[in-house]
Design a protein around this nucleic acid. Structure first.
Length: 145
DNA sequence: GCCAACGTTGGC
DNA sequence: GCCAACGTTGGC
């Protein structure tokens, strides 16, 4: 799960312990959090659009998917005037802090690791802010820690 | 700041 | 349904 550390980083989650992962405005991503995520699932926290993009921590999915309140807030940058309260368009899950990695596993290293040649993150045109990680890739990344 | 690669919107 | 225009993401 990607986030820009300037907006919300792993240190913020460590402080808050739990946080609604709001702002998802992509249908593919919405469908994944609705259909594929389960309470207790683990997820990598990835820092994007920053000095050293990479995997920085591990968190746990802490809720079922539920309507993202920011879509109804005209003052929010995520406001969606076309979404109705009785038929919400956008969902989110709560995530809970599990731990920071001992160091950042940078995108540069991930790209350089042959075992991760078929990892979604390194593929051309990958722009989804959330995507599934196979058990094999999960282990490979943790082995790099 | 640049730009590639998408996704979305809306006219037709 | 097509597709051009536009907006966004995110690495560099």
């Amino acid at each position: 799960m990607k986030s820009e550390p300037d907006a919300y980083g792993i240190d913020d989650l460590e402080r808050d312990r739990m946080e609604p992962w709001d702002g998802i405005r992509n249908y593919q991503v919405r469908n994944m959090i609705r259909d594929d995520m389960r309470i207790g699932d683990q997820a990598f926290f990835y820092h994007s659009s920053c000095k050293e993009p990479g995997v920085v921590g591990i968190m746990k999915i802490a809720s079922e998917a539920y309507p993202d309140p920011t879509q109804f807030d005209p003052k929010s940058r995520y406001f969606d005037s076309k979404s109705k309260e009785d038929d919400p368009r956008w969902l989110l899950v709560d995530v809970a802090f599990e731990r920071k990695l001992r160091r950042t596993i940078s995108l540069r290293e991930i790209k350089a690791n042959g075992k991760l040649a078929d990892f979604v993150l390194t593929k051309r045109g990958n722009r989804l802010s959330i995507f599934p990680v196979s058990g094999k890739h999960w282990k490979t990344i943790l082995d790099m820690e």
